[in-house]
Design a protein around this nucleic acid. Structure first.
Length: 556
RNA sequence: GCACCUAUGGUGAAAUGGAUAUCACAACGGUCUUCGGAACCGUUAUUCUGGGUUCGAAUCCUGGUAGGUGCACCA
C-alpha cells in the first residue's frame, strides 16, 4: 500500500514535469487527517518557488487519474499536505489477521541471531529495584528481538567475583566459620554491606581481604573458596526464582570470573599492539580525537578490571553464539565505559565492535533518595512487589494471588517502559504507580473486558465475523492495523516505549467506543461484526503486552 | 577543568523537521437500574532562556541558565 502510493506520487511528478525529489510519506498524527500524508508539494513548491497548495492540487488530480488500488480519497490540506484515505475494506480484512496469536510478528531481523544480555546480578547482593529496571527493559528488548523474525537468545552476566565479594566472604567466614551454608539471601547482602564498612576501618582487614581475593581469583583450594562456591550456587538459584517471577529466563550465563580469566589473556596478547603498560598496570589509551578517556584493563595487582572482563565477555559471547547483533543493557552511568571498551575491542576483532549494540537506561531512585546497594539502603524487588500486590488486593479483594501478581508487575513494568529509555525514574509506589488512566492495569483491564464480551457473545451463539461491517468502528480498525508498523519501528530502534504509547491509544479508542453504545444487541450479524473488532483489539493488546513482559489475567 | 546526557501544563510523561503540541494524574463538573466503573464525557492549564537555519522548530545549529553522569587501577 505504502509502496503503491510512493510509486504513484513519483509517477505523478514525472507526468507533471516536476523534479524528482525526496519526500515524506507517513501517518499523520491525527487519524482525521487520513491514513497517509505527504509533504511532496511543499518540497517541490520550495524548490520551484511556486505556491505549494496549487501544486498539491495538480498532483492530486494526477493521482486521482491513476486510480491507485485501495485509495479512497485524496485531499489537499493545511499549507499543502496531501492526505490519503484508504479504502475501509483493507482494514476490515485486517481484522482477521489481527485475531491471530502471531499478529505483530515482523521480519525486521529475519534470519539473524540476536543476543540480549541483561539483568546481570551481583551474586552477593539481593536483587533490588535497580536490577528491576534493567530486567524490565532487557526482557522487553529480548521479546522485541524474538518477534522480529530473529533467533533471540537471552543471557546474563553474573558478577561473581570482585574485591567486594571478597569483603563479604571475609565477614561470612569470621561470623559463621568454615561450615557456613547459606539459606537466606539477606545474610549475604548484609555481609556485603558490613564488609564494605569493615574494609574501610582497618588495615589488617584490608590485607586479609586482598588475600581472600587472590585465592578466589586463582581458585585456590581454601575455606574462602568453599564458602564462595556455596554462596554462588545458592545465589544463582535465588536469582532464577526472582527473574522467573518477573517473566524472564536465560539461555546461559557467562560468569565474570570466567570472563576475567579470558579477558586478561586477550589483553596481554594484544599488548603492546592495542594496550599499553603504564605504572605497573595495562591500560588502553584511545586516540585523542575520539574524546574517550584512558582506562585500566589490568590493574597493578595483575587482576583484570571490569574493562578486561568485558573484553573476555565479548570473546566468550561471540565464541559461544556468533551473533549478528549483540545487545547489552546497562544503566547510563556506564555509557562512557562501554565506549572505551568497544573502541578497544574493535581493534582486537572488528566484529566485536560492529555487531555490538549498547542500550542504556536511567537510574531508579527510590522516593527521591539516591541509593547504593553496597550501603544497603536499596529496596529489594521482592519487598516492592509484595507491597504492590497488597495494594492491588486492597483495591479488589476478589482477585486471585496469581492475578494480583500479574497486575502488580504490569503497573511496575509499565512505569519503567512508558518512558524513553535513558531517563531516570523516581520510583515512589505511592505516586508513580497507578492502576488507573495511563497504566499497565488499564491495558490489562481493557483486554479482560474485551475477553468478557467475547465470552458473552459465545454464550449467545455468536462468533466474530467480518461479513457485515457496521459504522462506528472505523477508528479502531485503522488503529489495530498500525500495530504491525509500531512493532517494526520499536524493533528497528530498540525502543519498547512506542509499543506502550500505541497500546494506550488503542485501549482508549476501544473504551471510548465501548461507552458509546451496546456491542451485543439483537442484530446478530452486526454483533458478529463488532465481536470481530473486539477480538482483534483484544489480541492486539495481548500481543503488545507480551512484548512488554506483561501478562493478562483472566479476571481482575 | 574536560566530555556526555537532560530541561514540555501544578505533577508524571508522549510527539519520524510538519497541520490546532498529545496522554494520564491532580483540580473542577457530568455519565451510573452497567455487554465488567481499574470505565466513559467535559472544563482549566504546557515546549528553561537569547540568537540562528527552515516554507515550517519541542525537535537541527549556537551562546546562556539549571540539573544529572563520567573522566587510571571499584563494578
Amino acid at each position: 500500500m505504502y509502496k503503491g502510493l510512493e510509486k504513484g506520487i513519483k509517477k505523478a511528478l514525472s507526468e507533471l514535469g516536476m523534479p524528482e525529489i525526496a519526500f515524506s510519506l507517513e501517518h499523520p498524527k491525527e487519524l482525521s487527517h487520513g491514513d497517509y500524508m505527504s509533504n511532496v508539494a511543499l518540497i517541490v513548491g520550495k524548490q520551484e518557488g511556486k505556491n505549494p497548495i496549487e501544486l498539491a492540487k495538480d498532483i492530486v488530480k494526477e493521482l486521482e487519474n491513476q486510480k491507485i488500488k485501495g485509495v479512497e480519497k485524496i485531499e489537499v490540506a493545511g499549507p499543502g499536505f496531501i492526505n490519503f484515505t484508504l479504502n475501509r475494506n483493507i482494514f476490515v480484512r485486517g481484522l482477521v489477521a489481527a485475531q491471530d496469536k502471531e499478529w505483530g510478528n515482523t521480519e525486521v531481523y529475519k534470519g539473524k541471531k540476536i543476543l540480549v544480555e541483561h539483568s546481570s546480578p551481583n551474586l552477593f547482593k539481593p536483587f533490588h529495584i535497580g536490577h528491576l529496571m534493567n530486567n524490565t527493559i532487557g526482557e522487553a528488548l529480548y521479546r522485541l528481538a524474538k518477534s522480529s523474525g530473529a533467533k533471540a537468545i537471552p543471557i546474563s552476566f553474573p558478577s561473581d567475583i570482585s574485591l567486594g565479594v571478597a569483603k563479604a566472604v571475609f565477614v561470612l567466614l569470621e561470623k559463621y566459620g568454615e561450615d557456613f551454608d547459606p539459606s537466606d539471601i539477606t545474610a549475604l547482602g548484609d555481609a556485603y554491606v558490613e564488609g564494605t564498612k569493615r574494609f574501610e576501618e582497618d588495615e589488617t582487614i584490608q590485607s586479609r581481604v586482598k588475600e581472600i581475593a587472590d585465592n578466589l581469583y586463582a581458585e585456590r583450594k581454601s575455606p574462602e573458596l568453599e564458602i564462595f562456591q556455596k554462596c554462588k550456587k545458592f545465589n544463582i538459584k535465588y536469582f532464577e526464582d526472582v527473574v522467573a517471577k518477573l517473566g524472564s529466563n536465560f539461555d546461559s550465563y557467562i560468569y565474570e570470573s570466567d570472563a576475567g580469566v579470558d579477558g586478561k589473556k586477550i589483553v596481554l596478547e594484544n599488548t603492546p599492539k592495542v594496550f599499553t603498560e603504564s605504572e605497573g598496570a595495562v591500560v588502553y589509551i584511545p586516540e585523542e580525537e575520539k574524546k574517550l578517556h584512558t582506562a585500566v584493563f589490568i590493574n597493578s595487582d595483575g587482576h583484570p578490571t571490569y574493562e578486561a572482563k568485558d573484553i573476555g565477555l565479548l570473546d566468550l559471547k561471540f565464541k559461544r553464539y556468533d551473533p549478528d547483533i549483540s545487545i547489552i543493557i546497562t544503566d547510563n552511568q556506564q555509557t562512557s565505559h562501554f565506549q572505551v571498551v568497544v573502541d578497544a575491542a574493535g581493534k582486537i576483532k572488528p566484529e566485536w565492535q560492529k555487531n555490538s549494540v549498547h542500550r542504556s537506561h536511567g537510574r531508579m531512585s527510590f522516593k527521591g533518595q539516591k541509593m547504593a546497594s553496597r550501603l544497603g539502603n536499596v529496596p529489594l524487588v521482592e519487598d516492592v512487589l509484595g507491597a504492590v500486590v497488597e495494594e492491588v488486593k486492597e483495591k479488589n479483594s476478589d482477585v486471585t494471588d496469581e492475578s494480583a501478581q500479574m497486575i502488580a508487575i504490569a503497573s511496575i513494568k509499565f512505569a519503567v517502559l512508558r518512558t524513553m529509555a535513558g531517563k531516570d525514574i523516581n520510583f515512589d509506589p505511592e505516586t508513580s504507580l497507578s492502576f488507573e488512566g495511563d497504566s499497565g492495569p488499564y491495558l490489562q483491564y481493557t483486554a479482560v473486558r474485551a475477553g468478557s464480551l467475547l465470552q458473552k457473545g459465545e454464550g449467545l451463539g455468536l462468533k466474530p465475523d467480518i461479513k457485515n461491517p457496521v459504522v462506528g468502528t472505523e477508528t479502531l480498525e485503522r488503529l489495530v492495523a498500525r500495530f504491525f508498523e509500531v512493532c517494526s519501528r520499536a524493533q528497528e530502534e530498540w525502543a519498547p516505549h512506542y509499543v506502550v504509547s500505541y497500546l494506550l491509544e488503542l485501549a482508549q479508542a476501544f473504551n471510548s467506543w465501548y461507552g458509546q453504545g451496546k456491542i451485543l444487541d439483537e442484530d446478530t450479524s452486526a454483533t458478529a461484526y463488532r465481536l470481530s473488532v473486539v477480538s482483534a483489539t483484544r489480541q492486539t493488546l495481548i500481543n503488545g503486552l507480551w512484548v512488554l513482559g506483561i501478562e493478562v489475567p483472566k479476571k481482575m
